[in-house]
C-alpha cells in the first residue's frame, strides 16, 4: 500500500521488515510511550515503532459524516468503526477499525495494524492506518 499511495502524514507510518508500523516516541527518563511521535530533535525522547498487535480496548461507530474541516474525506459517507487498541508494553492507540462487521465488535478482541487507503475530497488517495481482527490460523 505504502508503495502505491503516499502516507497521510510524515512521521506517522513506516515499513519495517515488510510490515507497516506506527512511529511513536519513548521518553528516556520514564519509559513512557507517546503517540504521535514528538518532533525530531527533542532529545528527551527516543524514536520507537509501536507493536503491531493488541486487543480492542473500546470502540464505537461513527454514524454521521464529520464536519469539514477538519474531516477531509469525500462527501459520500459510509459509517465507520473507531476504537482504542491496547498495545502491550507501549500504549493504547486510537484508530479506525476495518475488516469486521459492526455487530462483531467486542472488547478484548485481538487486533492487528493494517494500512487503510483514505480517499480525500479531491479524489486523491492517501494511506492511513487502521486495526483489523487478528487472523490466527487454527483459531477461529
Amino acid at each position: 500500500m505504502l508503495d502505491i499511495h503516499p502516507p497521510i502524514a510524515d512521521d506517522l507510518l513506516t515499513l519495517s521488515d515488510g510490515a507497516l508500523h506506527l512511529i511513536a516516541s519513548r521518553e528516556i527518563a520514564t519509559g513512557r510511550h507517546v503517540f504521535p511521535a514528538r518532533p525530531a530533535g527533542d532529545n528527551r525522547f527516543d524514536r520507537v515503532l509501536l507493536p503491531r498487535q493488541g486487543s480492542l480496548w473500546s470502540w464505537t461507530v461513527q454514524r454521521f459524516r464529520p464536519k469539514s474541516p477538519p474531516y477531509a474525506g469525500p462527501e459520500a459517507f459510509e459509517p465507520y468503526a473507531v476504537g482504542y487498541v491496547a498495545l502491550a508494553g507501549a500504549l493504547i492507540v486510537e484508530a479506525r477499525l476495518t475488516g469486521i462487521a459492526f455487530e462483531a465488535l467486542r472488547l478484548d478482541l485481538p487486533m492487528q495494524l493494517v494500512p487503510l487507503p483514505f480517499t480525500l475530497a479531491n479524489g486523491e488517495t492517501r494511506t492511513t492506518f487502521a486495526f483489523a481482527p487478528l487472523e490466527t490460523p487454527g483459531h477461529a
Binding site: 497521510i8 502524514a9 506517522l12 504521535p36 473500546s58 470502540w59 464505537t60 461513527q62 464529520p66 474541516p69 477538519p70 474531516y71 477531509a72 474525506g73 465507520y80 473507531v82 476504537g83 482504542y84 486510537e94 484508530a95 479506525r96 483514505f118 480525500l120 492511513t128
Partner: peptide
C-alpha cells in the same frame, strides 16, 4: 496533527461513546 482530524477521529461524540 492534521491527520487526526482529516481521517475522522476528532469528534467529541466518539470520545464519550467509547
Amino acid at each position: 496533527p492534521d491527520w487526526y482530524g482529516e481521517t475522522g477521529l476528532m469528534l467529541t461524540t466518539q470520545f464519550f461513546a467509547m
